[in-house]
Design a binder for these strands. Structure first.
Lengths: 165, 165
DNA sequence: TTTTCCATGTAACTCGTTACATGATTTC
DNA sequence: GAAATCATGTAACGAGTTACATGGAAAA
């Protein structure tokens, strides 16, 4: 959850926003990069509110369901600072499901082995192409940096696969 | 869960084993690579038993708690084959928590930014050294292949960090 | 007028971890 | 006699997803 919290707190750094707005931003600008679902954002925002890291105000527009506008509090800013540093050094995420499969790859025959690895290669190529095609957002240098990181890691896998094949 | 199932089914491929034995093997040979906890293994084995993918037999040795010896069934073998192929192509695990932090890295001042990134670099170096030092197990080519993959990915991050700094 | 967008949620479920509990046996 | 090892679990919790539910407003 802490990871999602960091994401949300960060999005509230620059401006107060309501839940839908945040989800919208994520979907339109970060989909394919961040995989947080709508309901998760809503309930994480609730939690942050309960813990006092964000403040919530209702905003009525016409006859629609009231918007819940969230604003970062001082404690929220402090939590952000802490989580940012924590995740910057935290070494997690290197475990990849594919590695479990690789452990047992010699239970496949040569031809099939090559076939599935090639399939993986094609999938990675597609993912790289998709991510590389997303335009820079002007949201900040950091986002492009983060996407650059992801691309670098995917290219590394690609290289590894090619070498194996 | 499917990922853990693949791991356990795979360990039962070569021979029937009881829970403690499996946990022991993982701890002694795969710790630092696979992060599955003991209770998780026990309950996953239970599930596999209920679903008929493994068969369980009790084995009494002296006065101790009976060993539960698990054996792969035909359906279990089929599940293994399916999961193996599935995870071989599945593109997941590229999301890394650090990337969320990277998105917001420009909220740190130059000096601190460099400091934390250097810390990460040191942590990665340590992790690489630890993993590279684990001896080959003779368990199968696959395990070394999987560890090689992990090492490759960690070195890729290291490279990326160095380039950034 | 039908579809899409706006804006929120809840309930049920899965997955996994943590901490706890038990009790015999072997080793120091 | 104390500590580590053998061998199993359960209960409670946390995090997240899925599917479902609502209902007005704008656009096609």
């Amino acid at each position: 959850m802490e990871e999602r919290k960091l994401l949300l707190l960060g999005l509230l750094l620059s401006q107060s926003q309501h839940g839908y707005q945040i989800n919208d931003f994520i979907e339109k600008n970060l989909s394919g990069f961040v995989g947080m679902k709508r309901s998760t954002a809503y309930s994480t925002l609730d939690n942050l509110c309960e813990s006092g890291h964000v403040r919530m105000e209702l905003e009525q527009v016409g006859n629609r369901p009231a918007r819940k506008v969230y604003t970062l509090t001082d404690e929220g800013r402090r939590l952000f600072d802490q989580l940012l540093r924590e995740y910057l050094v935290k070494l997690e995420g290197f475990e990849m499901p594919v590695e479990i499969a690789l452990m047992y790859i010699d239970s496949l025959e040569e031809t099939e082995r090559v076939g599935w690895l090639s399939k993986r290669l094609a999938a990675i190529d597609a993912a790289i192409a998709a991510l590389a095609a997303t335009p820079p957002h002007g949201f900040g240098v950091g986002v492009d940096l983060a996407i650059g990181h992801r691309l670098h890691m995917m290219r590394a896998e690609r290289e590894w696969l090619l070498n194996l094949l």
